[in-house]
């Protein structure tokens, strides 16, 4: 897909927070806009193309997470901020190579600041693998509805269209049921009583 628009930093932040198709569009834009960094990091840190690509994809996901969690304070340009995330991720990739530590699993499972503040959780109970298994158990239609709602930020009306549901109300009801199902699966596999 060609990306023809240019967005200011504040527009990017706003569109990520808005969610829905605007978020998908901006994720595409971010992907296209910083491709040049791959070669730069590859050369500077002597990474393989696969490692640099992996770090790039990882860094983009982290950038989006940081923006959503209000951790990007606008003290630098967004591209500079992204480069620092990307560079650190590349260093992590290299470190992972030498220590064989699963850096991304720990990183991805970290609770957001809000989540930490709310529950003061210290321990990480799950692994990415476990989360994946739980997601698999709820089935594809439920997974799609829940991800559209919780990760992509689509409205109930949009979810109804995307999942071919009759109305906004039926989307809301499905989301409720699916979320309940996910919680039940998680409670069982996490050993809650």
């Amino acid at each position: 897909m060609a990306v023809d628009n240019n967005y200011s930093d504040s527009e990017i932040i706003q569109l990520i927070k808005n969610g829905g198709s605007a978020f998908e569009q901006i994720a595409e834009y971010l992907f296209e806009s910083h491709l040049g960094y791959i070669h730069k990091a590859k050369k500077q840190l002597n990474l393989s193309l696969e490692q640099a690509n992996d770090a790039y994809a990882d860094a983009l996901v982290k950038l989006i997470r940081q923006i959503r969690n209000d951790r990007f304070l606008g003290e630098s340009k967004l591209s500079t901020y992204f480069y620092s995330i990307f560079h650190n991720t590349c260093v992590d990739v290299l470190r992972k190579e030498t220590t064989n530590l699963s850096y991304s699993s720990l990183n991805e499972l970290a609770y957001s600041k809000k989540e930490k503040d709310l529950l003061n959780l210290i321990e990480l109970k799950d692994s990415v693998k476990q989360v994946k298994a739980q997601m698999h158990q709820i089935g594809e239609p439920c997974k799609k509805i829940l991800l559209d709602w919780a990760y992509w930020g689509y409205s109930m009306r949009e979810i109804a269209v995307r999942s071919s549901l009759a109305s906004e109300e039926s989307a809301r009801s499905m989301k409720y049921k699916c979320l309940k199902k996910l919680k039940a699966i998680m409670t069982t596999s996490n050993g809650y009583t």
Binding site: A27, I38, A57, R65, L147, L182
Partner: peptide, 25 residues
């Protein structure tokens, strides 16, 4: 439980997004 569920969905969403970026690369 609600926080755990939302976190799991975030992790899964991020995994999917990362996979799509990697595929495109």
């Amino acid at each position: 439980e609600h926080i755990d569920a939302r976190r799991a969905l975030r992790v899964e969403g991020e995994q999917q997004l990362k996979a799509s970026f990697k595929h495109r690369l």
